[in-house]
Every structure is written in structure tokens, then in C-alpha cells.
Amino acid sequence: MARGWFITLPLAAALAASTSLTNAAPPESPSAAAFREVAKVLNHPRCMNCHTTVNWPTQGETRQRHTFNVMRGPDGGGPPGMRCTTCHQDKNQDAMNIPGTKNWHMAPMTMGWTGLSPNQLCKALLDPAKNGGKTGEKVIEHLRSDPFVLWAWAPGGKRKPPEMAHAAFVAAADTWIKKGADCPQ
């Protein structure tokens, strides 16, 4: 458990309480501002397509529902007999325009981000019940080195990676957590 995690939470809450009393929006904290940058990346189709809150993945830049009735299945890896790995292999298959990395699967429904505002997204990422029981440091670690996250910057075919470079993204996430894990309003 990262100690900073629990320390920052009351601070964030206090900050939220105080800003609600003022008319003019105060300048956002550096942490919250950093999260806005993080959120831009998280809202990218490369992340959102598999972090859905529905029973199926989406696909493409428009995040349309995955074609041919592809379903999440009980473990996020596709239903019995029609696993994600039926088509998605250990690496991108560019000739077929099929993305891939090891153990292709969806994020659990609890980690679904569809339709979340930056504030909600931030809170979800900080909530161990919605982030796979991760501490702030573990969240950073996930964003830094998880093969799926890295895949987003090398998605193959004509798929677009997030605009922000991966290193800048990790740095922003780091700032966000280290400077208080504030959530933008």
C-alpha cells in the first residue's frame, strides 16, 4: 500500500469542499491538471474500446460496437468457445488488420470507463474497488509497463495511438499521484 494514497484522499476532499463554496473557479491544482492530461489518453479509443461498461468491447476510432456479436464473457476474455484469442494473437496481425498482444482480453466491468467525466474517471482510478485493488503506485506501474497499455502506442495497422507520447503520459500520471492525486472538477 502506498502511504501517499491515503494521505491525499482527505486533502482532495477538502479541496473539493472548499472550491464548491467559491464562485470563481480557483486555479486547478498541478495534480488535477496533470490528471486532465492523463484522462485525455485514457479516453482514447485504444483504452476505451476494452474498458467498457457494457457486455461487449467496442472497436475502431469511432468506438463502434465490436462486429459480429463479440461478447465480454464471464472473465472478460470472451465467452466459452469464442475467446478473444480466437482472433487476437500475441502480436498485431497487420495483414488482417487485427490488433494483438499476449492474452488479449477486456478490462473487467468494474474498470469500465465508458462515459465517465475526468472527475469520475479520476475517482474510479483511485478507487481500489474500480481499479483492480491497485494503489496509486500500482496504477502508475500499470500505466508504465502493462503490455496492453504499451500496445496502445504500437497498435498496428491504421489504428492511431494516443497523441501524447507514452513517456509524457507516464510522467503526467506520476505528477498527478505524487502531487496529491487530485481529481479535476
Partner: peptide, 13 residues
């Protein structure tokens, strides 16, 4: 044992 679409499965794997 797992259903796999061989058109998108590299033979090397």
C-alpha cells in the same frame, strides 16, 4: 483445444 481463426494466427506461433 481452443477455437482459433487460423487466417489470423501466424504459423510461427
Amino acid at each position: 483445444g481452443a477455437a482459433t481463426r487460423s487466417c489470423s494466427f501466424p504459423a510461427a506461433l
